[in-house]
Design a protein around this nucleic acid. Structure first.
Lengths: 116, 116
DNA sequence: CCAACCTTGACACGATCGTGGTAAGGTTTG
DNA sequence: CAAACCTTACCACGATCGTGTCAAGGTTGG
């Protein structure tokens, strides 16, 4: 057997064995199995696991976010509809905020100061 | 004033006023304001809100998912890294599962039956 | 000026997420 | 065969999400 056990993989990637199983349930990793059902992690999987860790921390996002990004790649209609919905976002006035808005912000600050 | 108040918009879109404010906090909608700070919803925003409802139900996803999709559009490096991570996914054997895996599945069923 | 709106902020509550632990049982190895 | 692994299946717990409700106060229209 030329692969690592779940504990060894955990040791080398920084994940806990518990989390490695959780990641598998979420479809984010998919190790091979021995005939007896033991998970076997190869070098590629180790790299993916380390990179995943780095990704999550660097961009401060959750596993469900990554899982959803995976959905976006696989489900074409979801990606399409979602993309066109986001496309239609009416961008706020690109210049300075409207006088009205400034006015409102200003009043808010006054109110805050008055309250303290 | 040629826009709708938050209650009217709620009535017409199926969202609650509470949720409309929540959606705004999440950056998923961004209504104009009157000088006094009252939200003003235009026809475009109403349409977006209805479409959002439909999206969420049709694809069974959450607001945070949509918000994350928005992040993906705006943050190029996030999209890039995430995409290349997903790209590297070692696809499971495209054909039938390996004999080993089948074997394992079979044993699992036996174990389950034996337990009951 | 008063009723009926609107605003923000807070508390609350069930559901899910990310994690850990532990139990019950199969496997591998010295 | 016993120790040290592995497996799945649970219970638990804090954090966050999606929602409702309520309080305290500003705005507006009859």
């Amino acid at each position: 057997m030329d692969g690592l056990t779940i504990h060894q993989a955990a040791e080398l990637t920084g994940w806990s064995p518990r989390m490695l199983r959780y990641l598998e349930r979420g479809g984010l990793v998919d190790p091979e199995r021995t005939p007896a059902g033991y998970r076997v992690f190869g070098p590629g999987e180790l790299q993916r696991l380390r990179t995943l860790r780095e990704l999550l921390e660097r961009f401060d996002c959750g596993l469900s976010d990554v899982a959803f990004a995976a959905r976006l790649r696989n489900e074409d209609d979801l990606r399409g509809e979602l993309d066109s919905w986001l496309e239609s976002e009416p961008e706020r006035p690109q210049g300075v905020a409207s006088e009205d808005w400034l006015d409102w912000e200003q009043r808010k600050h006054e109110a805050l100061l008055a309250a303290s």
